[in-house]
Amino acid sequence: MMKADKRFAVFMVLPALAVMLIMTVYPMASTIYYSFTDFRLLRRNISFTGLKNYASLLSNEYFLASVWNTVKFSLLAVTFEVVLGFLTALYVNSLKSLRLQKVLRTVILLPYLLPTVTAALSWRMMLSPNYGIVNQFLAPMGLPVHNWFRDIHTAFAMLVVIDVWQNMPFVFLMVYAALQSIPQEQYKAARIDGAGTIAQVWYITLPNLRTALMLCTLLRTIDTFRIFDKVNLLTGGGPAGSTTTITQYIYNSGIKSLKFGMGSACAIIMTGLVLVLSALYVRDIMNQRSI
């Protein structure tokens, strides 16, 4: 590489590199460091307390409950998102009119494109116990009505429903794109061999979609695992902690109460979980991307 080219390369990459160092590498290292201390924002001295934060978190039932809530939320939401997204993609792809397909694609994507805060508030309005359209429809039919976000039996489920509603379109879009790249000859050959619809889905569609479905599952898992905005807006973690996810827990008992050492330890545990969940993906993708 010539000297001038070297200068060019450095000049091009340096700003992004600097931002990442200051805004991510340094913070990540500090979070690790803080997690071993009793750091509180308004107190002067920080002392090193070793694994004390971790030990007290692992015996803290509220924290453990938040981990369980997060895992439960991820499992439920991702399962529904992937299954419904997949079925929706099959459905749209099976329509004969390409124009109709394109229009439907846009309509289905709508929830995904809304700002999360806006989507959450719209649902809150519909589900309002006094003035909401949902209760107004359910009540005359003799169906149970609830104060959806305050009732311990429904709050968690409502968050799952809203997340599925908003993010199923992402899975739909990825699967729909993958569906269109399956060679039609495969179906033709299968039909000649006498395969029915179910057999075609099982033996041709699913194997071809394997990569897309795995990728969606992983990306949705990473994203649902960090859920915060919907929770914070709609339930604040309640009622009785039944919707407190890890991020909401860190927000309430680490950041708002200024217990930064403890909050950092939570964040590190969460980071560890996310990295374990995505380790295989990271390995595969780094092998694919030769740089």
């Binding site: 990459v13 590199l17 990442m20 805004m23 991510t24 590498v25 340094y26 913070p27 990540m28 500090s30 979070t31 803080y34 924002l41 990473i222 695992f225 960090r226 915060f228 890890i246 991020t247 860190i250 680490g254 950041i255 930064f260 909050g263 950092s264 939570c266 964040a267 590190i268 969460m270 980071t271 996310v274 990295l275 995505s278 990271v282 993708i285 780094m286 991307r289 740089i291």
Partner: peptide, 23 residues
């Protein structure tokens, strides 16, 4: 650098927020 970019996409925001707040 490329590896770290991927990791940052994966990590939850809380991994960075507390030190950023103090900063």
């Amino acid at each position: 650098f490329n590896f770290w970019i991927l990791i940052v996409r994966i990590l939850p925001p809380v991994a960075f927020t507390i030190p950023l707040y103090t900063m």
